[in-house]
Design a protein around this nucleic acid. Structure first.
Length: 338
DNA sequence: AGCTGTGTTGAT
DNA sequence: TCAACACAGCTG
């Protein structure tokens, strides 16, 4: 799968960024909060002095978009008197576009949205093919664009099961006990990391930041991981998102994770896993977590819209990088600066 | 410690 | 339905 910069600013937004009929006047002066943490400071109209008590968040001009105290933007939609949270976003427009997607899924193609451009037939089909909870989950994890693109590609392949993928194996690693333990991280062997997943220079010295990468598994599911360099241990690691993968795939020490890249022009990244050789695959998670025919893990996201489990996104504004741009091709990288 | 997203309320 | 606001509780 591609790195996340794509999903954060492409199909959610870029193709559809014409202004809404409902967009309020652009010229309206509004306060934008700078920096981190605190709220913006507004003038106290009584005495013309800034006061703590008059701190106020800036309203969004977009429907379904609400400000967050740290300067980011939340998206939400209402259904049956209940709010459905769609996640938080660095850019107001991303949040607005996410609302639009949810609105089309919840209310149909003609739903009132922030941006014009009705979704394509393909996108409408994609929306209909997924439950509300699944769509919400994608929005919250910022994987919607990737999954949509993936589904379109499968459709074009013609053989619906996606088995025709041609990819080059980048490297494999037999996971260690700590890779599947409570540390919630996977150490990427240095030689592989530096060869295939070079971090941008500006990120390398900072162990806490890193980049977000998206990889697709053999089921077509998109996984997003934080990838960074830890100075303390001088190692490259996948952190956020990794424990979910371990849990869902029921990875055990000795099992092998495999990183692959599509040989096609898209250079899609994939992650695959194999049970440690000598162990029957029937011990895999699929049998373990199925209960009365229901996949328990998936059930949480399929059961109810309000159950959609989001991940808390990166705390600081995350720099999201197309690592291919840095490591493999000359494409322009990057999107959101930390 | 900082952030997300829920609880709540009042408006449209 | 919707957004504004406060902040509990979660996450890194």
């Amino acid at each position: 799968m591609d790195y996340s910069c794509i999903d954060d600013n492409t199909s959610n937004t870029s193709e559809t960024l014409s202004m809404s009929k409902k967009t309020p006047p652009q010229a309206t002066m509004r306060l934008y909060r700078m920096g981190s943490g605190g709220s913006s400071v507004v003038l106290d109209l009584e005495n013309g002095v800034e006061t703590e008590s008059s701190r106020k968040l800036p309203s969004s001009k977009f429907k379904g978009v609400v400000p967050q105290p740290n300067g980011r933007w939340g998206a939400q939609i209402y259904e049956k008197h209940q709010r459905v949270w769609l996640g938080t976003f660095n850019e107001e427009e991303e949040a607005a576009a996410s609302y639009d997607i949810a609105a089309r899924r919840f209310r149909g193609r003609d739903a009132v949205t922030n941006f014009k451009s009705p979704s394509s037939d393909a996108e409408s089909a994609f929306l209909e093919a997924h439950s509300k909870a699944e769509i919400v989950d994608m929005l919250r994890k910022h994987t919607y664009a990737d999954e949509l693109r993936q589904s379109e590609r499968k459709f074009l392949d013609g053989d619906g099961n996606g088995k025709k993928r041609r990819e080059e194996v980048l490297f494999e690693k037999a996971v260690t006990p700590s890779d599947v333990g409570k540390l919630n991280r996977l150490v990427i062997p240095k030689q592989h990391a530096e060869k295939h997943f070079p971090l941008p220079v500006s990120v390398t010295p900072s162990p806490t930041k890193g980049v977000l990468i998206n990889l697709e598994d053999r089921t077509g599911k998109v996984w997003r991981f934080r990838y960074s360099y830890w100075n303390s241990s001088q190692s490259y690691v996948l952190t956020k998102g990794w424990s979910r993968f371990v849990k869902e795939k029921n990875l055990r020490a000795g099992d092998v994770v495999c990183f692959e890249r599509s040989s096609g022009p898209d250079q899609q990244l994939y992650i695959d896993w194999k049970v440690r050789s000598g162990i029957e695959k029937t011990t895999s998670v699929q049998t373990v977590v199925r209960l009365f025919g229901v996949n328990i893990f998936n059930a949480t996201t399929n059961a109810n819209t309000n159950d959609a489990v989001g991940e808390s996104s990166s705390k600081k504004r995350s720099r999201e990088v197309d690592l291919f741009a840095l490591g493999c091709s000359k494409k322009q990288a990057i999107i959101n600066v930390l």
